[in-house]
Amino acid sequence: MSLIIDNLTVRLYTDFKKKEFFNVADSVSFSVQNGEIIAVVGESGSGKSFLGLSLMRLNPPYISEISSGSILISDSGGFEKVDIVKLKENQLSGVRGRLISMIFQDPNVSLNPVIKIGEQIVEAILAHKKMKKKDACDIAIHYLELMRIDGKARFNSYPHELSGGMRQRVMIAMAMVLEPAVLVADEPTTALDVKTSLQVLALIEKMRFEKNVSVLFITHDLSIARNISDKTLVFYAGQIMEYGLTEDIINNPAHPYSISLTKSVPGLSKDYAPRERLFVIPGSLSQGDFKSGKCRFYNRCFKKTKECLNEIPLLKLSSGRFARCVNII
């Protein structure tokens, strides 16, 4: 196991002085084996990015804090083990990028607009590895080329001179360049076209097979989850709603939320009619949904009953398959 998350709870303060908060991640437990890819799917605002950021301890300070649980990370050889939650602030920089690294949803967060992209990658390498600058340049160019960017020609480009998709790929190159044990990829292909997107997926697969990287792949696109991941974790309002093998979850979703998600994608099957209106989950996810003592999906569920007005535990459906719902037959 290279990543074991146990009972992780992250508070997000809505009013810090009055100590008002909700759990943006609520008792989250799962583990990722060496070389395994786990997809986290769910709507925007459900807390996926927060979960990812918390694993790096990059959740925004002052407004949020990890209130309980542990995040155990080990390198693929199992020589080094750390609990990210317990690390001191000054120990984190030695771990980030090297043991665990992240592709951010927002490329503007991790790219400095006034530094040439090649320089930025070289800096990232030199921060962790002792080597000649020339060699770091070669590695940077190599990783840019893996991302289908002409590394030599674009080395001296500034972020704003690239298209949105190119910026995203530069960032991916930067996250991959240190070959971390755990990679958190937050919507890494969302801004990319099919061809490049498949390219990125293929690169992640390659890293997984060759370097045994474990990946937490955050996405809202079920067809991408199906394509890349071994297991899928359906996330809603800070909680795991369903968990199991990806094939099972996509082909045979059990939780009403998973069912609703799969019905809202425009298909390409034979009987599919263009412009037919897609299934839309009524209402929207609000921050109030994170707090309630009832099922988090209650307000929008097509199957709700009065039994749902309690905290719902994660129930085991079969070996390796869990769902948080009382109305699954």
Partner: peptide
């Protein structure tokens, strides 16, 4: 909709 999740995307497309 390329930055949106499925359900919101369905809503926006509709």
């Amino acid at each position: 909709v390329s930055a949106l999740d499925v359900s919101v995307s369905a809503q926006i497309l509709n």
